[in-house]
Amino acid sequence: MRPDFYVLSWNDVIISLVFVAISVILIKKWKLGLENTLLIGTLRTFVQLTVMGYVLTWFFDQQHWAFMLGLLLIMILIASYEGTRRQKNEIPHFFSSMLISLLGSAIFILGTILLFILDVKPWYSPYAAIPIGGMIIGNGLNSTSLTANRFVAELKHREKEIETLLSLGASPKQAVFDSMKASMHAALIPNINSLMTVGLVQLPGVMTGQILAGIDPLIAVRYQIMIMYMWFTTATMANMIMLAIVYRQFFTKKQQLRRELLRENFRSASLH
């Protein structure tokens, strides 16, 4: 390892603003009207990540399991809120569904990595738990948000099919199982595609970061392989848990499809 290798100073970061300046010039030339949004985004990236850096430094100094678990829980709560906000459709109890699916998959996957793969000692060492936990939660958030949107679209598209199956004696789960399968399929294909192309088209972020920080590429590669497998499992587990909770919200206790939730204007109507 070469710890001093390519260390960035704040001056270096300021120089990298030249990229933003180039983008602003190009955007103005095309009159895209996005300059202000880009400048706000640039500022937010700087502030959010700098604050996060200080917060992480403070947390890393605490060396106590409660701080690590507390931070992970906060990340999961924020992700669940963000996932609910991104939802185009009204799904009752979606925040709790996200919370349970992210919590469940994070506990299982992070626990396995910390205890059995990396063998981290102590297990709550934030240097491993926080970045890996962050990746699990982030990937879980993106995947479950997309899957939930797709699931509701499937329900809308298959409303008559679902009621036909119910009428033939299917349980609610049996009636929506094809919709669940279709949305799982859509969620997992991008993950499988990235397993196919990783390393051929681009070097993934974690690996690039480690190599830039001076880590032996062969060690960086092993981390990346583990992360790719972890990502896929996160998407599979979090989506399955989320769908197993969410589909129930679309049925009454009397096994009737709540068709009012599938109407286009339901969300806006219910918010007023």
Partner: peptide, 10 residues
């Protein structure tokens, strides 16, 4: 309900 729906087709 499931038995009802098998007995009452639509």
């Amino acid at each position: 309900i499931q038995s009802l729906r098998q007995n009452v087709g639509i």
